[in-house]
Simulated assay, not measured.
Amino acid sequence: MKSERMKMAAGEWYTCIDPELEELRVAARDAVFEHNNLPPRRRGDIGPALAALLGGAGEGARIEAPFHCAYGFNLLLGDRAFLNAGCTILDTAPVRIGKGTMLGPNVQIYCAEHHREAAGRRAGLEIAKAVTIGDDAWIGGSAVILAGVSIGEGAIVGAGAVVTRDVPANATVVGNPARAVARR
């Protein structure tokens, strides 16, 4: 029988109301707390406990405080990836942020989709879908990126956009839901 963590990793319906998953979230909250509360000169680019928890962080990757993630181990940052203050990443599935990509303040990335039926939500059922952001993308402040979305290399997501579908390389999207616009 598969554990809830195994189901989550496999992209199957799982219940987030699970002791093993809760323990993993507690470990992430501890690492995030350290990161958010260390003086900037002692924290460096990423607090030590958070850096150890992450799935990977390339050279020069930086996360400004405050920051929040659900698990941490599903977050992979490319070289020079930059997450500005207030970013929230609910990494129930892998989140890959490419080299040189910049996230503005308060960007939110959600990998979990909750069950459509009320009874399923009461049971804590959700499904995790990966999010990928290519190299050299720019995600404007307060943008929201939903589960399963891929954003191509060099793409721009305007501030406040809600990205519900894939964004091609070098495209610019704005609005809610995000729609393509011509680059200036």
Rank of each mutant, 00 (worst) to 15 (best):
S3R: 05
R5G: 04
M8A: 07
A9C: 13
A9V: 07
G11S: 07
E12W: 04
Y14C: 06
C16E: 15
D18I: 02
D18F: 13
D18T: 01
D18E: 11
P19M: 01
E20T: 01
E20P: 00
L21H: 01
E22L: 00
L24Q: 01
R25W: 00
R25M: 00
A27L: 02
D30E: 01
A31P: 01
E34K: 00
N36T: 00
N37K: 05
P40D: 04
P40L: 06
I46W: 04
G47V: 08
A49V: 09
G55Y: 12
G55I: 10
G56M: 10
A57D: 14
G58T: 14
G58W: 12
E59T: 13
G60L: 07
G60W: 11
R62V: 12
R62K: 07
I63D: 08
H68D: 00
L76D: 15
L76R: 15
L76Q: 14
L77P: 08
D79T: 04
F82W: 15
G86T: 08
G86R: 08
G86I: 05
A93M: 03
A93P: 08
K99L: 13
T101N: 10
M102R: 15
G104M: 02
G104P: 15
V107S: 10
Q108K: 10
Y110C: 12
C111L: 11
E113D: 15
H114Q: 07
R116H: 15
R116C: 12
R116W: 14
G134V: 03
A137K: 06
W138V: 01
I139V: 12
G141I: 04
G141P: 04
L146V: 14
A147F: 08
V149G: 15
I151K: 11
I151M: 10
I151Y: 09
G152N: 05
E153N: 15
V157K: 09
A159S: 13
A159M: 15
V163S: 13
V163I: 06
T164G: 09
R165G: 14
V167F: 13
N170D: 14
A171S: 06
T172W: 07
V173Q: 06
V174I: 10
V174D: 06
G175C: 05
G175K: 05
N176Y: 13
N176M: 15
P177Y: 07
A178R: 03
R179G: 03
R179N: 02
V181H: 08
A182P: 14
R183M: 10
R184C: 08
